[in-house]
Design a protein around this nucleic acid. Structure first.
Lengths: 285, 285
DNA sequence: AAGTAAAATGTAGATTGCTAACATTAGCAA
DNA sequence: TTGCTAATGTTAGCAATCTACATTTTACTT
């Protein structure tokens, strides 16, 4: 749903007439401020006549100019409203709460759009076929590994999280063909992680990496899942990458669940039932 | 930013005239479909005249009807586009990737709006003043505790994560006045967690709880931070609550950083430098 | 290469919806 | 009740969008 309009523009671009393309180009470049424009303004800016703008809207399947503008506004809202934030020491709690949530959301949306569905598919496939998943990660990525372990463990797989380089090394050499390693790193350049990943590869395991693209780890892994956050290394970037990693793990886990099908679902229910005993009962009214 | 308009409506409702309230009521009830309406339609639907609708828009601070509608459209887009999802076994990877990300975003937005700024402020205050933070949580919340530990540790605080009920119990009795416990639970009803929380309280510690409202844990804690996700206990709800908890931790950590000010920032830089040694160097072009 | 037909684009006017000015009504106090 | 003020509605003008038609461009045929 998110950049619907962008896609619609891309898909129909070839079908557009020459002067309609002018309009399309202008809209693509300018984006947000187009929502404030009247049809005359847009016509002038794109250097075409008003009816051409209208025909452009119709060609994309909209009712008219207003309809187009409304959709554009909604697109702009969903894409642009969650910007990277810059913390100001004078911010109120309310303000930086907003900023942090919004930038997290923005990063999620960005990664969602970038995430390669093919590699995701491949990752899910190998996970669905394996019995052993080891998760490697240090520092801020260590809790994500535990989380991943937790998720896959629920799916009746043998999942382990290693956040200690020695344990990782020892575990890596015991890996076999068909086993899967999920390597998680915010930088993609952690030396120890690269080392153990190499060991895992030598042992014949398949390595899925959650890390930024164009990093040593990304090159090493058979199945890289890129998590590239906005260029500037703001505080927000560091914070969001953990969260994004987690959501990617969610996607993987759900994918595996769906692939494994009904029997796993039943297993999940059993777990849910068995955990109930650890809680105080819900009050009945 | 998100449901700006909703807030604007709420805040200015009393200031509106009687017939303008009719319009406000109608907009509140109908919401999304108003974006398709012309001023005549809305006037007819709210059973007022067209200028009244216009005055209503102006009273809320908009330029005119179009301006109001544009904002409404953007609001509708940001609020409605990230719905709770229902997984379909025939979904493609691309499709359920979208669904999972979107529902996560939706939940984040929801929690952001619900999160009480006062309690947040209080939580930040006590965290800024303490030297010891213990994080308690089991199961899926355990990795969140580790994450929280990680975050606060970076801020030069003595932070520990306990995910073992025995360790928690032993740690709880050593707590002193001024110490802080962060209790994290998706259900708010985990028996062991309630037990150790009570011990912490008896020892004089301040308890911050991340959990749903109207749960035993929420009642127990001095500073509850509610994480209420949509009613239906879909798969998505369970997944998102961990992530939401993490973002709340982010907000707390940033808040503390800002409160502690410059010296902590310097400390953060030192950590960053010291970690650099663990990575392979960036290639220079 | 020139002419013709069809497609593409622009111009001008009609229509529709938005807004401003004014009129009327309702509410309230003296 | 009367007069005043605030609230709402009516009417009309204006501005924006859209339609119908004219002109230009493009491509294809001879």
């Amino acid at each position: 749903m998110t950049n619907d309009l962008y896609k619609v523009l891309q898909d129909n671009y070839d079908r557009l007439r020459k002067s309609e393309k002018k309009v399309a180009d202008f809209v693509m470049q300018t984006r947000s401020s187009v929502v404030q424009m009247r049809i005359v303004d847009l016509a002038a800016a794109a250097e075409v006549s008003e009816p051409t703008v209208l025909r452009f809207c119709r060609a994309l399947g909209f009712d008219g100019f207003q309809d187009f503008k409304l959709t554009l506004a909604q697109n702009v809202a969903t894409n642009n409203s969650y910007q990277q934030f810059r913390l100001d020491s004078r911010d109120s709690v309310e303000q930086f709460k907003e900023k942090i949530f919004d930038s997290t959301v923005g990063n999620l949306v960005r990664v969602k759009n970038d995430l390669d569905a093919d590699n995701l598919e491949r990752a899910i496939q190998v996970l669905a076929e394996t019995q052993r998943v080891d998760c490697y990660g240090f520092g801020a990525s260590a809790p994500i590994c535990s989380d991943a372990q937790h998720k896959f463990f629920r799916l009746n797989m043998s999942a382990t999280a290693y956040s200690d380089p020695h344990l990782q090394t020892m575990a890596a050499v015991t890996l076999q063909e068909g086993d899967v390693v999920i390597a998680i790193s915010q930088t993609g350049r952690t030396r120890d992680l690269l080392h153990t990943t190499q060991l895992a590869l030598q042992a014949g395991a398949t390595v899925i990496a959650l890390c930024p693209s164009h990093t040593p780890l990304a090159e090493l892994a058979q199945i890289p899942l890129f998590i590239d956050l906005d260029g500037d290394k703001e505080l927000g970037t560091l914070m969001s990458s953990r969260i994004t990693q987690m959501v990617v793990i969610d996607v993987l886990a759900v994918g595996v669940t769906m692939k494994l099908g009904a029997e796993t679902m039943a297993h999940l229910k059993t777990i849910k039932r068995s955990l109930r005993g650890l809680r105080t009962p819900l009050k009945r009214k």
